[in-house]
Design a protein around this nucleic acid. Structure first.
Length: 425
DNA sequence: TCTGGGGTCCTAGGACCC
DNA sequence: TCTGGGGTCCTAGGACCC
């Protein structure tokens, strides 16, 4: 069996741990740039009917009337809370895959003769007691079934927060209760197609012929189908594989029309992406640069452009990447549009140890070694003394383009002064 | 006025190789 | 009149996840 441990309304729950006055009141956490709701409390969902992705400006009245609180997203806090939760889970179920910022899968192979329901209930209580974050635990034979079980725990077993799906009868009943668009791997597009064919829930889906599913939804769809039949197709991944691409893009706090601030933003994103690149000891040989206006702009004001730049000698040197990115931006930038966003994606990643030198460029190994050493020192300084302690001039200083974060909570667990405040309380 | 960001995987079709 | 076959790589687009 596999377990899926998934936090309830995770960002909202994490905010509430350190701001208990938010408990029991409708609230939500906003996306970057305070754009729209991405995590909602039960009260916000149930009594106010706030949907995932509801824009901020549509909720403003609710806030003014005091019916709703909200916060900007604070990923530093959420990441740290998740680190604590997974550590607790690992003590009960050591074979763990961290799947996302708020959920992990565990293989329960070694627990054949245990009462899984009881173990899960105890684990859930422990997580709540130690971190203050409520979670639900779903247990099933495959990842997709564990996902189904988890959804049922959230919907129909709120008191216990645990649902174990062991017998074929339990599985069948669970699948009948699961709407088709609630199945992991079936998104809105496929859900529409399936409903047109009379497939309304997960059970209906499992009754379809396998080759029909293959034809309609390709091999990914078949994987979901087989998983619902209890056949494991999606393996556990204990070590996160290296990323195949790294992208960084943000919306501007206010629409931007000038090149200079866009260049600063872009250089900053490149520096962040390059840091991630070095962290996984990779280099990249292509960088894609793009900029565009808001997709909600009127048609005649829309503009979108992108350029893919090849880098002759694969690198993870921030300076080289910034230079390439800025060159590309200057080519695609035109004066006039009100830009909403610039971004980059590092592509063609490979291990730094497998770099193929350029035929026409002499590689000075001593110089390369020196550069790597310098980059390492910069990364270390920024880690120890705070982001941007050492920075590239192209990143600028004022950051007027920076995204909106008007309602940001404190980094309660990761800034020394914050930790002291909390401990004092 | 204001509407998120970061990923992965798969397929089809074109270009190109020998 | 008749004009191969097997393969790789790249890109664009579509779908999904959180």
């Amino acid at each position: 069996m596999l377990a899926l441990i998934d936090s309830n309304n995770f960002y909202v729950s994490a905010e509430r741990v350190f701001q208990p006055e938010l408990q029991g009141k409708a609230g939500c956490v906003l996306s970057n740039n305070d754009g729209c709701a991405i995590s909602r409390s039960n009260e916000a969902k149930e009594t106010l009917g706030i949907k995932m992705g509801t824009p901020y400006f549509e909720m403003r009245e609710l806030q003014q009337s005091g019916d709703l609180w909200w916060r900007s997203s604070n990923y530093t806090l959420y990441q740290d809370m998740m680190r604590r939760i997974t550590a607790i889970v690992r003590r009960t179920f050591p074979d763990q895959e961290i799947y996302s910022i708020d959920e992990c899968f565990c293989d329960l192979q070694g627990f054949k003769y245990h009462d899984l329901q009881q173990l899960a209930l105890e684990l859930r209580a422990k997580i709540l007691q130690y971190t203050g974050v409520p979670v639900c635990i779903g247990i099933g034979a495959t990842k997709t079934l564990a996902k189904v079980a988890n959804k049922l725990a959230k919907k129909h077993h709120k008191e216990t927060g645990v649902y174990v799906m062991e017998t074929p009868e339990q599985v069948e009943a669970a699948l009948k209760l699961t709407e088709i668009d609630d199945v992991w791997g079936i998104g809105p597009r496929y859900a529409i197609k399936l409903i047109r064919k009379g497939v309304y829930n997960a059970y209906d889906f499992t009754r379809l012929p396998e080759d029909f599913v293959l034809k309609l939804m390709t091999i990914q769809g078949r994987r979901t189908y087989l998983e619902l039949h209890g056949q494991r197709c999606i393996p556990m991944e204990y070590d996160r594989p290296d990323k195949e691409g790294i992208s960084t893009a943000r919306s501007f706090g206010v629409m931007e029309t000038e090149l200079a601030p866009m260049e600063e933003a872009l250089a900053t994103y490149v520096a962040n992406a390059a840091l991630k690149l070095r962290a996984q000891r990779s280099v990249c040989s292509r960088i894609f640069v793009f900029c565009h206006t808001s997709r909600f702009a009127v048609v005649e004001n829309l503009y979108s452009a992108g350029l893919d730049v090849k880098i002759d000698v694969p690198t993870n040197d921030t300076a080289v990447l910034i230079k390439a990115a800025l060159g590309a931006l200057r080519k695609i930038y035109v004066k006039g549009p009100r830009y909403q966003k610039v971004g980059i994606e590092l592509r063609d990643l490979r291990s730094a140890s497998q770099v193929q030198a350029s035929l026409f460029e002499q590689v000075d190994t001593a110089k390369t070694a020196k550069l790597q050493k310098a980059l390492k020192v910069i990364d270390q300084l920024n880690q120890n003394y705070g982001k941007d302690t050492i920075r590239y001039a192209a990143m600028g200083f004022e950051k007027k383009w920076f995204m909106k974060q008007e309602f940001l909570s404190r980094r309660f667990t990761t800034r020394l002064e914050e930790v002291i405040v909390v401990q004092a309380k």
